[in-house]
Design a protein around this nucleic acid. Structure first.
Lengths: 210, 210
DNA sequence: TTTTTTCTACCTGATTTCAGGTATATTCTG
DNA sequence: CAGAATATACCTGAAATCAGGTAGAAAAAA
């Protein structure tokens, strides 16, 4: 087995970082060369450091981890990215794999699983924790739909809808006609193929496009 | 400072447990005598073990951490419970303190803060991480409302509402009249003093009573 | 066994959302 | 610049939700 494998962690919870660092140190054959609580910190680091493995929490304060993954692979294609997340939605897993990730594990994975995944990823294979494998195994119809995008305005309105505001309330707040707000709402519902606002919020949250 | 302080952790993320354990071991004056991924495991352990400090994630798979805290204090009043959570809602913090917790820290607290809080709690004082102190500092009107409770049936219906199901859909599923479902919905909205379903879901989620 | 809570169901009317459109001005992009 | 995408606004009618009630049966608590 190789020595001096360079690893970094991005997670906004210091305690999690502590856990991973102590875990890696116990392994002996790799070292944690950096740990960050935000995506921007990581990017700065990446520009003048090499990295073999990156453990990446996809729920970060400053940036969507899925996009961050793509950026990382662009800067440093040789780095194997393993996503660490609480999200069990198949679409999210698929998205980040499409963006070049080498693996995906859930936060409730055992320490053993994490170890195994790191090793698997180092071998150039795709690495998943048990639960993730099950999720991947059962394909869903929704994945065929393709992922729609929301415009800036749509997102803005969606956020207000998610707060429980009414159409007229939103219209007042944004100085729009209620009809406009309605149109945006309906366009979003159409994009996600849902039939009411609550489903819209749920689906958008699932797909991290809120 | 005392030696052999007995500490336990409950968190459904093994990696977090790993982090806390390694942290505690570094401190040297206390030991982790147990770590659990669910509330029920903890309760079993508590029945024949002593414990000075319990670090308790309030988001557990099997039980609401707020209620678990009360159970713990009943079984072992001498144990200081420090809640660890992602929830920044003042009402949740207040609830768990009322149930006997000695502290509350957010998961994004630094390792230093966690250390300090453990020590503070050991001294019998209330311990909070920085961010939590800020939250506590600004009292909100809502806290005066008192916390309503939902009946089993109400919760059941609320969960279906939260899935985006329509009143008639829910009625079909539960073999009820749509009017009944409506009544439950409206009763819940009245209890939480909100004016539409989305607010209902948000508020209920915030207060962990879904 | 009373009393209270919970679950059930209904009435009426106002408001909001949903679903099918159309359409124009602006902004972004190739 | 031309075309595409976005943001804006409107029409109509159906469906669902919201808001104010009342009320009886069943279950739980006192």
């Amino acid at each position: 087995m190789n020595k001096n494998i360079k690893l970094a962690v991005v997670d906004d919870h210091p305690i999690v970082i502590q856990g991973i660092v102590s875990l890696i140190n116990n392994l002996g054959n790799m070292e944690v060369v950096g740990s960050f609580q935000s995506g921007s910190e990581l990017i700065i680091f990446l520009n003048d450091h090499e990295l073999d493995i990156l453990l990446l929490d996809i729920m970060l304060p400053d940036i969507n981890g899925i996009e961050l993954c793509a950026q990382v692979k662009k800067i440093s294609p040789a780095t194997a990215v393993i996503a660490i997340s609480n999200h069990t939605e198949r679409s999210i897993i698929m998205q980040i794999l499409q963006n070049g990730a080498s693996g995906y594990i859930l936060k409730n994975a055992s320490v053993e699983e994490l170890k195994n995944c790191i090793e698997t990823a180092l071998n150039g294979e795709l690495a998943f924790s048990k639960e993730v494998m099950e999720i991947i195994a059962k394909p869903s119809i929704n994945d065929l739909k393709g992922r729609p995008k929301f415009t800036r305005r749509e997102k803005e309105i969606l956020r207000l809808i998610a707060q429980g505001k009414t159409t007229t309330g939103i219209a007042d707040e944004l100085f729009l006609s209620p009809l406009t707000v309605e149109t945006h709402r309906r366009n979003m519902m159409q994009k996600l193929d849902v039939k009411n606002s609550i489903e819209l919020i749920n689906m958008a949250t699932e797909q991290l496009l809120i």
